[in-house]
Design a protein around this nucleic acid. Structure first.
Lengths: 137, 137
DNA sequence: CTTTCATGGTTACCTCTTGTAACTGACCCC
DNA sequence: GGGGTCAGTTACAAGAGGTAACCATGAAAG
């Protein structure tokens, strides 16, 4: 009944037409997704919603980020052209971070992710609770 | 001219009305974003587009993922109620992974992220090249 | 004049997460 | 009975990230 003896080449039970994008580690899409999908970039972009923020302000706002990782994350986002970094030659130093036009286009998508999360957090909490009780049985 | 002497409480140069969501490390939204924004979950969900896939199939498709991390990622997604795991009691074992209805709602958003990445990869590549040459000067 | 403080970092070190590779267990085929 | 398949698990190495201390500058405080 089950054709799982690995003789059957039809490995997928539903549609066969594959994903249309490249999953190779060295392709552009993967490299960009790795950046977006790291621990902090998403949060930084989500916070920089049509306003600029200073380094310390971001650090205070993003609970749990270390100074080093905020620096690293912002440099990467700057390198990707998503965030602009403006140094004001004053003392104490003042550096403003702001989304670039490209960053703004990404912000919209990321915001929808955040919205999804807000909308479905209760369902996920329920699923987790159920999974954990099943595990304990 | 520059009011950067830290006497000014108005730390933001643009709008002051803050982000509406919680950035605390222990809040639901952050925990879910941490899951979504890890190295592999995004890719798994993106690939499970209205079809089920077997473990080995996912492993072959997602270039660079290790067996261990695929196991861990799938278990987490299952715990979150985003992916369903179906074990067929055959030999050799056959396990099908599929998006749950909740997972499908997330897939739409993640797909828009992938689409954004595809659309703007050239711009990002350009930005990176420019940044790197500036750095070398 | 000396001390203190603030900002936006950088550096050394140590921990925790992830990758690597070998092993398992059930059964089929040869 | 030796080798192959699938879906893992385990021990260990490598790499990413966290922690805390330090730096430069100049204004303000004493």
């Amino acid at each position: 009944m089950e054709e799982g003896t690995s003789k059957e080449p039809s490995h997928s039970c539903c549609t066969e037409d594959a994903f249309q994008w490249d999953t190779r580690e060295d392709c552009d899409v993967r490299q960009i997704l790795d950046r977006i999908g790291d621990k902090w970039s998403l949060l930084v972009i989500a916070l920089l919603d049509n306003r600029c923020m200073r380094f310390t302000e971001l650090k205070k706002t993003i609970d749990g980020i270390s100074q080093r990782m905020l620096t690293v994350t912002l440099r990467q986002l700057e390198r990707d052209g998503l965030v602009s970094r403006t140094v004001h030659p004053v003392v104490p130093p003042r550096v403003d971070y702001e989304l670039t036009p490209l960053g703004v286009t990404l912000h919209a998508t990321i915001q929808s992710l955040v919205t999804w999360t807000e909308t479905h957090q209760a369902e996920i909490a329920t699923a987790r609770a159920r999974y954990d009780t099943l595990d304990a049985s």
